[in-house]
Design a binder for these strands. Structure first.
Lengths: 205, 205
DNA sequence: GTCTATATCCAGATAGAC
DNA sequence: GTCTATCTGGATATAGAC
C-alpha cells in the first residue's frame, strides 16, 4: 500500500513555504535575530534550496518586501479604480484605505507588521524608503487631488497626508505593540470622524 | 615642556563618550549592524572598558534607552508643570509637546531617532514597549484630562491621543527617513491647525 | 580601571553528492 | 533542484598584564 505510506506534507510550492516561514519569523523575532537555519527548519526545506531560490537571507527579505509591497499597491489601485467608477470623493477613498488597513491588521497581521512596522533600511540595502514607494505616494496623490478639488483644506501636502493617515498608522503600531487591546475596526468610525472634523470642541479663535 | 606634549584629547567622562558614540552608530547603521569594536573605535576607548562599564552591547543600548527616555520624561514633566502654574489648557500643552519634538528632530536628531524611530524590542530584552513608558502615558493623560474637562471631543482614549500626536510622530518618521525635506518647525502651525479643526472643508452630514 | 591579545561561538555561505 | 556536510569570517566576550 504505497500510497498510504507516501507522505504529502508540503503541498505548497517551495518558495512560498520559504517566504511564509520567513515572514512569520522575521515579524516575531526581528530580521537580525533569525538565522537562515531557522527559516530552513520552519519551512521544512534544506539550506541549499534557500540559497538556490533567493541567494541568501537578504534575498528572502527583498523578495518578501517586493511581494508584499506589490500586494498593498494592488489594494490601493483597486480602491482608486472603484472610486473612479463611482466618481467618489477623496475623503471616502481615504476612509476605505484606513478601513482596509485596520481590517488587515487583525486578519493579516504579519503582512501589515512587515510592511508598516519593520525598519527595512536596517536589513534591505539599495531600496528606496518605503514611504516613497508607490502605494504611499498614491495615497498622497489622493489627498493632493482632494485639496485641488476643494474638498480638503489647502495645507502643505505632507501635513495633509500625515494628518489623514498618521493617526491610523500610529494606531496600527500601537496595536501591533500590544498597547491597544481593542480590534482596530471597532475604533474606525471614531478615528475618521476625528480626522475630518478635528479634535477641539470649539474653534480656537 | 611636558604639558605641551601632554595630550588632553578626551575631556568627557568615558561612559559619556561610549554612549555618545553608540547613539550615533546605532542610529546611523542600526543596532545589529554595529559591533562593539565599532563603538570602541569611535569612542576612543578599549573594548575592556566597554565591558567594564556596560557589560556588553545590549548593556550599552539599555543604558542609552533609559537615559534618553528619562530626558524625554523630564521634558514632558516640565511642560506639565509650566501648564499647571499658568493653568493652561490641554490643547496648549499638546501643542507645546509637538513643538518641542519638532525642534529636537532638527537639533537633537539622533536622540529623537533613537527614541521614536528605532525598534527597541529587536535588541533590548525584558523592557516594556516604549509606547507604554512614562512620557507617553503622560501624554495620554493630558489628553484624557482635556476630554474630562470638556475641552476635547469625547472619543476613545486611544483614538484621541493618536489623532493628536499620530500625525506629528508620522511626520517625524518621514523627516528622519528623508522624505520630508522641510524642517518640521516650519510645518508646525499647519499641523496643529489641522489637528484641532480637522481636514474636511465642510462637515459631513 | 584600562588596555591588548586571545578564545569561543555561530551565522552566512559554499561544495559536491544525489 | 535538493540535500548534507563543511568552511570561513566576524562578532561577542574573556583573560590577564599593567
Amino acid at each position: 500500500m504505497p500510497y498510504l505510506n507516501r507522505e504529502v506534507p508540503n503541498p505548497e510550492p517551495i518558495d512560498c513555504r520559504i517566504l511564509t516561514a520567513a515572514l512569520d519569523l522575521f515579524v516575531e523575532n526581528g530580521y537580525h535575530n533569525v538565522s537562515v537555519h531557522d527559516v530552513q527548519k520552519q519551512a521544512n526545506v534544506s539550506i541549499g534550496s534557500i540559497y538556490n531560490h533567493f541567494g541568501g537571507k537578504e534575498g528572502i527579505a527583498k523578495a518578501l518586501y517586493k511581494h508584499l509591497l506589490n500586494e498593498m499597491n494592488e489594494m490601493i489601485d483597486s480602491i482608486i479604480q472603484q472610486a473612479d467608477a463611482q466618481d467618489s470623493s477623496a475623503i471616502s477613498q481615504c476612509n476605505r484605505i484606513i478601513e482596509l488597513l485596520f481590517e488587515y491588521t487583525e486578519t493579516k497581521t504579519n503582512i501589515i507588521a512587515f510592511i508598516l512596522h519593520a525598519k527595512h533600511s536596517e536589513f534591505i540595502t539599495n531600496e528606496i524608503p518605503i514611504c516613497s514607494a508607490e502605494p504611499f505616494s498614491k495615497m498622497r496623490a489622493i489627498v493632493a487631488r482632494g485639496i485641488k478639488q476643494g474638498e480638503l483644506k489647502n495645507y502643505n501636502s505632507w501635513v495633509a497626508s500625515t494628518s489623514i493617515f498618521g493617526g491610523a498608522i500610529r494606531m496600527i503600531h500601537l496595536r501591533l505593540d500590544g498597547a491597544i487591546e481593542q480590534p482596530l475596526p471597532e475604533l474606525y468610525e471614531q478615528l475618521i470622524s476625528s480626522i475630518w472634523q478635528g479634535m477641539a470642541i470649539q474653534d480656537e479663535s
